[in-house]
Design a protein around this nucleic acid. Structure first.
Length: 420
RNA sequence: GCGGCCAUGGCGAAGUGGUUAACGCACCGGAUUGUGGCUCCGGCAUUCGUGGGUUCGAUUCCCACUGGUCGCCCCA
């Protein structure tokens, strides 16, 4: 039996992995400029954390978790998202006693048991940020801006922010009541799922993609019209700050994010046009810290899917400026030169240049080909003749020009050539 | 969980009930002495995802399984 990679996972091979590194670096730079610190939490957590943190009624918890028992019978789960773990750490490490706010970001693999398809894997990767300890609406706008800038800085176009407010435990019951009342006479027009949502989470019905449900809810009450005296001005202020930051957004009163913990601001980064998929999303979760055992402290965050970014980059035919090749390929001829060559190569490398050589005992022609194949900027040619005279041939594979220089000038020569 | 499509060398891809299973890319070697990219020449699948069936004969037909892919649900 052939051993193959598990379903829904993928190997990142050379050629592709450089693009990931580029995006990851971009993310780190961006986070540093917004003064976010990285946090790394375990890949797995106790199952209860996600049940409590993400919400029992979510699809994630109901049917997508990678749960298993360890040898002592504890139920553990590969993290399906990042927020729960970060909140757990925030509470467990008592970060709430530090001066607030706390601004954290994370990046890494997440796991959900689903049928893989375009832009969806069982092991996928997210970058996300979380801010604890402030309810100020300008923070909401600022992290939306951060996410938006990630996309634009990569060259993506047509990214749009969809914005909504899902209220808070004070105002949501009023909307819920209105929804139930409004839909009482239309229950038979709703799909199976939505009929059960009528009891569990009527607001989610607004977000159903089925045509019949959309028609039934065409004039259904929208949460933003039921916001309380705290949530309404908060929502208005978020919009104002987004205008101030020139982040293009659109209020979507149907959008209700899939996770149970959101309060007030909910948003999604979507790609306009035929692809149209969701690139990422997030929102405020003012009750979550307490739910996980901490103080009553506000939080807000988002997560974006890295695979979705690469899918969008591909669709828009954007080539990332990744660096390949080496600065110098050392060609040696003869046993004396080969022996001396290892030291020369080491010198090049110690000076910070990237350098390569032939390991297959190829002839001159083969070595030249190898140098060309790996896109070496220069080839340094060392034969026994050169070695005797303490000289070395240097050829630029870009211009094709070649000259002979003093052997101990090689590092400097390559370094100068690299700058130009 | 449900549905569509697909499965030929490292990759892409043609093909037929019985042929030495095309071709392109990549790779390796060569085109006289120590110089890459271009060109030319040569090499590179006893085998067509796995198992069964139909047949004188199957890579080609049928079934099952496995895998991939796309979609539904939901989301990143």
């Amino acid at each position: 039996m052939k051993l193959n990679i598990p379903r829904g996972t993928f190997d990142l091979l050379p050629g592709q992995v450089e693009k990931w590194q580029y995006v990851e670096n971009k993310i780190r730079d961006l986070c540093r400029s917004y003064h976010f610190s990285e946090i790394r939490t375990p890949i797995f957590e106790r199952t209860e954390l996600f049940q409590r943190g993400v919400g029992e009624t979510t699809d994630i918890v109901e049917k997508e978790m990678y749960s298993f028992e360890d040898r002592s019978g504890r139920s553990l789960t590969l993290r399906p998202e990042g927020t729960a773990s970060v909140v757990r750490s925030f509470v467990e490490k008592k970060m709430y006693v530090e001066p607030q706010p706390t601004k954290l970001y994370y990046m890494g693999p997440m796991f959900r048991y689903e049928r893989p398809q375009s832009g969806r894997y069982r092991q996928f990767h997210q970058f996300g940020v979380e801010v604890f300890g402030t309810e100020e609406p300008d923070v909401d706008a600022e992290i939306i801006d951060l996410g938006y800038r990630l996309y634009t800085s990569l060259g993506l176009s047509g990214v749009k922010v969809e914005l909504n407010s899902v209220g808070c435990p004070d105002c949501r019951p009023n909307h819920r009541e209105a929804m139930v009342e409004y839909l009482a006479t239309k229950k038979d027009q709703l799909c199976q799922d939505c009929q059960s949502r009528l009891n569990r989470n009527p607001m989610r019905i607004l977000d159903c993609k089925k045509e019949s449900c959309r028609q039934a809810t065409e004039k259904a009450p929208r949460m933003i019209h039921y916001l309380c005296s705290k949530c309404a001005p908060h929502f208005e202020a978020v919009k104002e700050y987004l205008d101030e930051l020139a982040v293009p957004y659109e209020v979507n009163t149907r959008m209700v994010r899939g996770l149970d913990y959101y309060t007030q601001t909910a948003f999604e980064f979507v790609l306009e046009g035929k692809g149209g998929g969701s690139l990422g999303g997030g929102g405020r979760y003012n009750g979550l810290v307490q739910e996980v055992g901490g103080p009553d402290m506000a939080g807000i965050g988002f997560a974006v899917g890295l695979e979705r970014i690469f899918l969008a980059l591909e669709e828009q035919e954007i080539t990332l400026p990744v660096q390949t090749g080496v600065d110098c390929f050392l060609v040696t001829l003869g046993s004396e030169a080969k022996k001396y060559g290892v030291t020369l190569l080491k010198k090049l490398r110690e000076s910070g240049l990237s350098a390569e050589r032939d390991y297959l005992d190829r002839k001159l022609k083969g070595q030249m080909k190898a140098a060309d194949r790996i896109q070496a900027a220069y080839v340094a040619i060392l034969g026994d003749q050169e070695l005797q005279e303490k000289k070395i041939g240097v050829k630029s594979l870009i211009t094709g020009e070649q000259e002979t220089i003093q052997l101990d000038h090689l590092v400097e020569y390559i370094r100068n050539g690299r700058k130009s």
